[in-house]
Deep mutational scan, measured.
Amino acid sequence: LSDEDFKAVFGMTRSAFANLPLWKQQNLKKEKGLF
């Protein structure tokens, strides 16, 4: 994903996403069907 796409899908920047706990990152990915 480009940075723009990433922001559109997750509603946050990559750095904000990277600061989330791993389980939360994985839950978000599953919610968005990216897993």
Rank of each mutant, 00 (worst) to 15 (best):
K24E: 12
N19E: 10
N19V: 07
G11R: 02
V9T: 12
K24R: 11
R14L: 03
N19D: 11
N19M: 13
D3R: 06
N19W: 03
L20D: 01
F10M: 14
A18G: 11
L28S: 01
Q26V: 13
L1S: 13
K24Q: 14
T13R: 03
R14G: 04
D5R: 10
Q25C: 02
A8Q: 13
N27G: 10
A16S: 08
G11I: 00
S15F: 06
R14Q: 08
F35A: 11
S15M: 11
K7Y: 03
K32G: 08
F17P: 02
P21I: 00
T13D: 14
N19C: 14
A18L: 11
F17N: 00
L1I: 13
T13F: 01
A16F: 05
L28E: 04
S15H: 12
F35K: 14
A16D: 12
S2K: 08
N19G: 12
G11L: 01
N19I: 09
F10C: 03
V9E: 12
G33C: 14
G33V: 05
L22F: 06
A16Q: 13
E31H: 08
K24M: 12
N27Q: 15
A18F: 09
E31I: 06
E4T: 15
S15D: 07
L20N: 03
F17Y: 12
N27S: 13
A8C: 03
F6Y: 09
P21V: 00
E4D: 13
Q26Y: 06
M12D: 00
P21H: 00
F17A: 02
S15C: 07
G33K: 10
M12Y: 04
A18S: 13
L34D: 11
L1E: 11
L22M: 12
M12R: 03
D3G: 13
P21A: 03
Q25H: 00
K29E: 15
Q26S: 08
A8Y: 03
S15W: 06
V9D: 04
V9Q: 14
K30W: 05
T13H: 07
M12V: 04
D5G: 10
S2I: 10
F17V: 01
L34I: 11
P21D: 02
F10L: 04
L22G: 13
N27T: 08
L22P: 14
K29G: 07
K24G: 03
S15P: 09
D3Q: 14
F6C: 05
A8R: 12
R14V: 04
K30F: 04
L20M: 08
L22A: 14
D3A: 12
T13A: 09
G33E: 09
K7T: 09
M12E: 03
V9P: 01
D5Q: 14
F6V: 01
A8N: 12
S2A: 08
S15L: 10
E31W: 04
S2D: 04
F10N: 03
E4G: 03
K32H: 06
L22Q: 15
A16R: 06
W23I: 04
S2R: 02
L28V: 07
Q25K: 05
A16T: 13
K32V: 07
F35W: 15
L34G: 15
D3N: 10
F10W: 06
L20K: 04
K7P: 07
P21G: 03
A8S: 08
R14M: 06
L22N: 13
R14H: 15
F35V: 15
F35L: 15
L20R: 00
D5H: 15
L1P: 13
G33W: 05
K24P: 00
K30G: 07
F17L: 02
G11Y: 00
Q26K: 08
